[in-house]
């Protein structure tokens, strides 16, 4: 049996000033090419889990192994993990293509290569020709695509998505989720997708981790999860009863 692409071994984390773990003894393994849904109500620790994997928040215990290397104490900018926030966090002082090119610029990619790559990913997310637009002039859906393009530009080995549809309306979400699914499949991405929306998780994920009060209470495929929820809480979260 091959070792997983990303594994968390007994990972705990806490916030300053609090004695309670925000994440408690989490051990999961994720294989290359898998899309993992992270499902939980607000305050369950889903966002903290992503932050710990991205290196934005320190672990208090345990280790994180990424692609065979222990990255537990590696600073964020050296982890090579893509990250996308709910509010998209586009740089307001840069236009669309400068936003997308940001990571490439940090990686010192030559200018000519950079513009080719930017055009490529903008094309990929369906925003060809948007390069010179001011990010403030974009619609919610367009902002979401720019954020995705910015994350994809560096071809990260793992992408972390924190409720990327969270700030969009239902109609837009129903259109964008299948698109995202297709993109993930085409590019063969390994991804963690945080959401509190059951249908989004079921539509996108190969496997779903359900979090409750900082612990993983169940980690299974959508089918198993639906058929045999491990606890009352999981069942309620899935909308049973």
């Amino acid at each position: 049996m091959t070792s997983p692409f990303l594994s968390l071994n007994h990972v705990s984390a806490r916030y300053g000033g609090s004695d309670d773990d925000a994440l408690h003894d989490i051990s999961v393994g994720i294989n290359a090419g898998e899309v993992i849904g992270v499902l939980g109500s607000s305050g369950s620790g889903k966002t903290t889990l992503l932050r710990v994997i991205a290196g934005l928040h320190a672990t208090s215990e345990g280790s994180i192994i990424l692609d065979g290397l222990d990255v537990t104490t590696t600073p964020t900018h050296l982890r090579g993990v893509g990250l996308m926030f709910q509010e998209h966090a586009l740089f307001p002082h840069l236009n669309v293509s400068d936003n997308v090119a940001f990571g490439l610029r940090m990686a010192k990619t030559p200018k000519s290569e950079r513009s080719i790559r930017v055009a490529e990913v903008l094309e990929l997310v369906g925003l060809a020709g948007f390069g010179t637009r001011d990010v403030a002039s974009l619609s919610g859906g367009e902002r979401q695509r720019v954020a995705l393009a910015r994350t994809l530009a560096l071809s990260p080995r793992l992408i972390l998505l924190d409720e990327p549809m969270g700030s969009l309306d239902r109609v837009l979400r129903d259109r964008l989720v299948p698109e995202l699914r297709e993109l993930i499949d085409d590019l063969g991405l390994t991804a963690l997708y945080v959401t509190h929306d059951r249908s989004e998780a079921f539509e996108l994920a190969n496997r779903i981790a359900v979090l409750d009060e900082g612990s993983v209470v169940q980690f299974d495929t959508p089918g198993v999860l639906d058929a045999r929820p491990a606890t009352e809480h999981v069942a309620r979260l899935l909308g049973h009863r």
């Binding site: 991205a54 900018h77 940090m106 994350t151 560096l154």
Partner: peptide, 9 residues
């Protein structure tokens, strides 16, 4: 944080 994740020290 986005900038850090995009590789900025």
């Amino acid at each position: 944080e986005s900038a850090r994740a995009l590789g900025a020290p």
